[in-house]
């Protein structure tokens, strides 16, 4: 079962939420530039799945990956410094919001080409299996990625070659502004996985306990069978796709309905009702999160710019 207690699970979701809110503020202040994709509303998925990940496990994510990076061990300081473009950032300021990396934490990005990380995650899982390393490999992607050839090719090869990879589809119903029903002839995503003989399950992605339970079942299966597994997490992003999105494609009522299922609010309510947490403890958690994020902002502000003389570094291992 979960490696973390309930209070920590709540704390982790709150950390993601607060960091993302602060990112939005920093974006309007023009401290963060470029594209910024926020994970607000979807926290239970990353917090649930990552609660089962150990330091040696491989994680591959998308361009909406701040939360995944944070819970895989990349500090909020390094994440914010990266978004500020500072050399102290987790990708030394070369990546930005969409390309967070941390090789020590085995966090492999931060991939902003939809579905591109999926075969790479399969390669990581294949390597771990061949090298007989005790690692899980987990790959996050949105339901939009399931229209890409790379997804289908990888599903097929993963099952064919018995690659122990956990496919985690964060189905937030919209590929940017295109609704699932407007882009997929088969909307039952589990059936798509089953078409490749991949074992699959669907999960309420707004419920962290269900996320953890079903992910644990999947990881046990992968370890036992040495084969892939597909999980669909039904979730919703409360914010626009990116900071440029005027949200013409969905109505306010739909967003309001989903906000009532907020994974943090419902989990808090559940813990309070069961007397597993007190209001005072929640206040303490809030302060703890605020301290972490405020320190991260200061760290990012105080970070330094990489000298332009170093511009052509990191293209090859050895300068040519």
């Amino acid at each position: 079962m979960a490696l973390l207690d309930h209070v920590t699970l709540l704390l982790n979701m709150m950390r993601i939420r607060r960091m993302e809110e602060v990112c939005a503020e920093l974006y309007t202040q023009e401290k963060i530039r470029g594209f910024l994709h926020l994970y607000i509303g979807e926290e239970a998925v990353a917090a649930g799945v990552l609660s089962l990940m150990r330091p040696q496990d491989n994680v591959m994510a998308t361009y909406r990956e701040h939360g995944h990076a944070l819970l895989k061990g990349v500090s909020a300081k390094q994440i914010l410094a990266e978004m500020f473009g500072k050399v102290e950032g987790c990708s030394h300021g070369r990546g930005g919001s969409m390309h967070l990396f941390s090789s020590v934490n085995r966090f492999f990005g931060g991939n902003a080409i939809v579905a591109s990380g999926i075969p790479q995650a399969a390669g990581l899982a294949l390597a771990a299996k061949r090298l007989k390393e005790d690692r899980h490999t987990v790959c996050f992607f949105g339901e939009g990625a399931m229209a890409e050839g790379a997804f289908h090719e990888t599903m097929n090869m993963a099952e064919l070659w018995k690659i122990p990879l956990l496919f985690c589809c964060e189905n937030n119903l919209y590929a940017m502004g295109t609704a699932l029903k407007r882009s997929q002839s088969q909307m039952d995503l589990v059936k798509k996985a089953n078409a490749y003989n991949v074992t699959a399950n669907s999960v309420d992605g707004m419920n962290i306990i269900e996320v953890i339970e079903k992910t644990q079942i999947a990881l046990d299966f992968i370890k036992r069978e040495q084969r892939p597994y597909f999980l669909e997490f039904k979730t919703y992003r409360f914010r626009p796709h990116s900071m440029f999105d005027p949200e013409l494609y969905r109505n306010k009522e739909e967003v309001m309905n989903w906000k009532e299922k907020c994974p943090i609010l419902t989990f808090k309510g559940h813990l309070l009702q069961k007397n597993m947490i007190s209001e005072l403890q929640i206040q303490e958690l809030t302060l703890k999160v605020e301290k972490e994020i405020q320190e991260a902002i200061i760290f990012a502000e105080q970070g330094t710019w990489e000298p332009i003389e170093d511009l052509e570094k990191h293209v090859y291992e050895n300068d040519l």
Binding site: Q120, G123, L124, A125, L126, L131, A150
Partner: peptide, 15 residues
Amino acid sequence: VGFTGIGIGAAMGGL
């Protein structure tokens, strides 16, 4: 695209 991507991942993973 799939097996080239798997090659990239396998290379990152130590093969």
